[in-house]
Design a protein around this nucleic acid. Structure first.
Length: 303
DNA sequence: AACCAGGTCGTGA
DNA sequence: TCACGACATGGT
């Protein structure tokens, strides 16, 4: 109890970029920001609340997992943070596919694609449609506090200011009424959330079933949920099912790719996705995330 | 006060 | 197939 697990010299990893790149929504930065090299976050994931800190180290970064046993890191967080994947190889291949992306990848070289829970990812990206990231985080937290299981006090190593509950399970969202779901301020997405919860709770759609399908069939099954279109399905594949060749095209990716590849000419999302998957192959999902961060930081295509 | 946000649905050519 | 408005909510 109360022991910290520490990783030294982790390369291609920057906590700030991992969490703030728009792939996950149930977390908060908890440090003051006074020291520019240190980042501290609370993350609610994997039926736990994790208090984690990043500091510079001689070669890469040091990650401190507070109040974490070795086995928890080995069986949970190692996988969640994609620690053992070779991101140097990923970046090399992306830059091979398009040398112009070298600077973009360098600027965001600490990104990792998290291995998140399927159901939470599905609902979170249903919520994400036509919303900005701070609002998505708010709705995710509202759903959790209103309908999710409260933390066991022994799980918290200090009082959390923002969080008190896990993201609701499919069963919990299935049992809730549409009005209760609407309390989260999800608006017109409430029936979408209900349909997703019902299809997952009934076993009609599960991560296990989806894992057996090829990309096209998996996406088609996801899109049988009312409120899940191409973009949300691709995000669920990429962030919640480990399908790293998925290339979600949202308004940002459309602007960024039109800027880079189509001479600013209006181009259908389907063409953008198809061309990107040809260009980046099995690395398309990673490329998408580097491009997304680049576009957001530099406000590509915004007046 | 309009307009937009990590979109999708329903409708009508 | 494709264009277009509606959809809750909150922020410029």
């Amino acid at each position: 109890m109360n022991r910290n697990f520490v990783l030294e010299n982790i390369k291609d990893f920057h906590l700030n970029q991992v969490l703030e790149c728009g792939q996950c929504f149930h977390f908060a930065r908890t440090d003051s920001g006074i020291n520019p090299d240190e980042y501290e976050y609370e993350i609610v994931a994997k039926d736990r609340i994790l208090h984690i800190k990043e500091e510079p180290s001689s070669d890469g970064v040091r990650l401190i997992f507070f109040n974490t046993e070795d086995w928890e890191y080995q069986t949970i967080w190692k996988q969640y943070f994609d620690i053992e994947r070779d991101y140097a190889e990923i970046k090399y291949n992306i830059i091979q596919a398009d040398p112009r992306l070298e600077e973009i990848v360098d600027q965001n070289s600490g990104i990792r694609i998290l291995n998140q829970d399927f159901f939470e990812t599905l609902i979170s990206f249903i919520v994400s449609q036509n919303k900005q990231i701070p609002q998505i985080k708010q709705v995710v937290n509202n759903l959790s506090t209103e309908l999710g299981t409260k933390f066991d006090v022994t799980m918290i190593d200090r009082l959390s200011s923002e969080f008190d509950s896990f993201f609701p399970t499919a069963e919990q969202l299935h049992m809730a009424t549409e009005e209760e779901v609407r309390m989260s301020k999800c608006g017109f997405r409430a029936p979408y959330i209900k349909d997703a919860a019902e299809k997952v709770f009934s076993g009609e759609i599960t991560a296990e079933k989806l894992a057996k399908l090829d990309d096209d069939d998996a996406r088609e099954l996801l899109m049988s949920i009312h409120g899940v279109g191409e973009k949300v399905a691709n995000c669920v594949m990429l962030f919640g099912l480990g399908r790293r060749s998925a290339f979600p095209v949202d308004v940002w990716m459309k602007r960024i790719c039109e800027y880079l590849y189509y001479d600013e000419v209006d181009t259908p999302k389907s063409i953008i996705e198809e061309d990107a998957k040809k260009r980046f192959g099995k690395y398309a999902g990673y490329a998408q995330q580097y491009l997304f961060m680049y576009g957001q930081k530099n406000r590509i295509g915004i007046k």
